[in-house]
Design a protein around this nucleic acid. Structure first.
Lengths: 203, 203, 203, 203
DNA sequence: AGGTAACCGAGACGGTACGTCGTGTCTTTGC
DNA sequence: GCAAAGACACGACGTACCGTCTCGGTTACCT
């Protein structure tokens, strides 16, 4: 969120940011999210639970979405590692199976809430893309790239667009379509993807 | 949403006003959306502009999202017909090229706003899926089915999941990923889909 | 305000009070008062304008009222000398005419602001009385005493109460009553006071 | 406070002001004033105690001072009747003795708080003068007028200025000067006033 | 000469109240 | 007898200052 203060120790005047408050706020946000969900979470509730003035939150984050995003990403458990087993089929299946559980329950609520906020608040949208969407997409592209180099995909496959298809299907079911995110879905997607092994004949 | 006022001129006791108000509200919603966008639109603003009591809005719609949804769908221009040219490649490309423009500009804002609301309000989520998401998905499945029957897709292709991939990619770029929805994207997706023609060898 | 550090040089360790900051604060207070008036003046604004930490102000004054009071009294122009012309009528008339202008404009705003603060803050009320109200009252009593000794007032006149009447009329018009503080008012008051020359007949 | 809605029944649309809320607010204000004093009273506390939204208070009063003023004057006990005994001396003495007790204790705090607010808020100052200060002054002038007609004051006495002197002395001791408002003070003032019986000789 | 205590500018901190906004409900009155 | 106008209870918003604290640094007295 705020790593851009590196070369400023020259004119760092006044009291420093309290990392105690910083952590208390993120922890409080996690607890409030757990209890009432993203929609009902308020800055006031976070401040009250963290024992912190509202100003302190507004000083460091522009919106409740930003707090929620950092409270989500600062907890390592949320991060799903991208597998590298030497097989595209296993990598993809494994990735889906690992990432689906995090979309269920309260943590899923947070994520869909952040996606909602990104629609309503362009500033947050940019931040969300920068710190969440794009890095994950890049890792997925790398995963596909490894498969391509092993010959598991046609060499001329547009990996960017393929990643859009894969992530898109997942987000589509998560956000919009009333259909389950389960192992059956994972297998069916992987089955379709693997057919792309074949060279493009024409077009 | 509210088509049940048909045979009511008989006991016209100020009731005839109803469908007039109904239209005025939808029209006002469209204007407010146009001017301030989905996020900043309020029920109060719609009521004021329509010259209508807020109660009248709440009587027929449960939320501003519901008003926006109906104001969007009641305008036929938004509806994109699914092509049937006899060629899967042409059908898909045409569909993309026709539907992308509606996601730009203000009407795109409304749609992403509704998608956002669906994350935050489960009641509206259900309505949005029922009247918007699912019908379009079914039409896309039908389009793919026609291609499959023509032999343009492998006979054992899971069309539901394939539709998730296609719609997913579109919504993913629209809602989450900072990448353009243009003809290049359309062509690349179609190119990938068409490779699925080949029979599944193993898996 | 802070003259009680006389016999403390025994354990006067550390840096001494910066008279430069002291003066900068009083000057900044005067400027802020001039620009925004007493009500809108804040400690933060004074500190910012003086280029001084808020703590430095709180170290030496208990409230913004105390700063304003000192910034007012430290400027000699505000002090109105009590005349001694040998005539009660001339002394009183002159005093009024000299003191009325200071109640107009911004400096009047400060004074009424301090009077307001004295209602709201008992600690400041005491300070305001001690350093402002009482000394002036005593000088007025002395002025009246000189008149009494010259036979211009009845010998049994209660000068304390008479001073209350005179000052009261001035403050009443200044703070509460929407009537002008001008030479006509001054003359009319003096006219009434001078009638007290006559001995009390009964009572 | 709001008597200007007389000839408006022609276009009185919408829900009317709830007199229940109105009274609840005034009552709550009285209670809060009693408990914490004027300075510490807040709009939020009044709203909470009255079971009323803050908006409802702001809709009808511009400031907490206005609420306090109406809550004070709407309680008839505060009003001190001006006596008419046929004797100026008795009228004045009686008036003082009746009015001094109301300046002690909590109700005195409210009054000095309102006087303070009038210094800080020009809009309220005008309202305070209009509904509180001026009417009382006029009654005092009338009281003096009765004495003058009975020959208890010189016929050319400037009653306006005399009233300023009398009220001024009272307010001066009440707001500014650390001296008691008691029967001794009342008698001494009256004694001085009564000396004005004599005709002006010169001046 | 060094130690150390009090000062200084800057500004983040926990708090409190502000006045506004939008929600969804409820009156009142006019048509 | 419906529906416009709009008052209502509620509750979060984001802001403004308060008075305190922490920080790095500066005097200037006292060993």
């Amino acid at each position: 969120m705020a790593e851009q203060e590196k070369n400023q120790e020259s004119f760092a005047r006044g009291r420093r940011r309290s990392s105690q408050s910083h952590q208390a706020i993120l922890q409080a946000a996690r607890e409030v999210l757990e209890q009432v969900g993203y929609q009902a979470m308020t800055i006031e509730a976070i401040a009250a639970r963290a024992g912190v003035g509202k100003k302190t939150i507004y000083r460091w984050w522009p919106s409740k979405a930003a707090v929620a995003l950092e409270s989500l990403t600062s907890h390592t458990e949320v991060y799903v590692p991208f597998p590298d087993t030497g097989s595209l089929e296993r990598d993809l299946t494994l990735y889906f199976e690992l990432s689906f559980p995090g979309l269920q329950g309260k943590s899923g609520t947070v994520l869909s809430g952040l996606a909602a906020e990104a629609q309503l608040d362009p500033v947050f949208a940019h931040e969300f893309q920068r710190t969440f969407i794009v890095p994950r997409k890049q890792e997925l592209v790398a995963l596909l790239q490894r498969g391509l180099q092993r010959g598991e995909l046609a060499p001329d496959t547009n990996l960017e667009v393929l990643a859009d298809l894969i992530y898109g299907a997942k987000w589509y079911r998560f956000l919009l379509h009333p259909a389950p995110l389960d192992d059956v879905f994972a297998r069916e997607i992987v089955k379709l993807i693997l057919r792309l092994r074949s060279e493009a004949s024409r077009t």
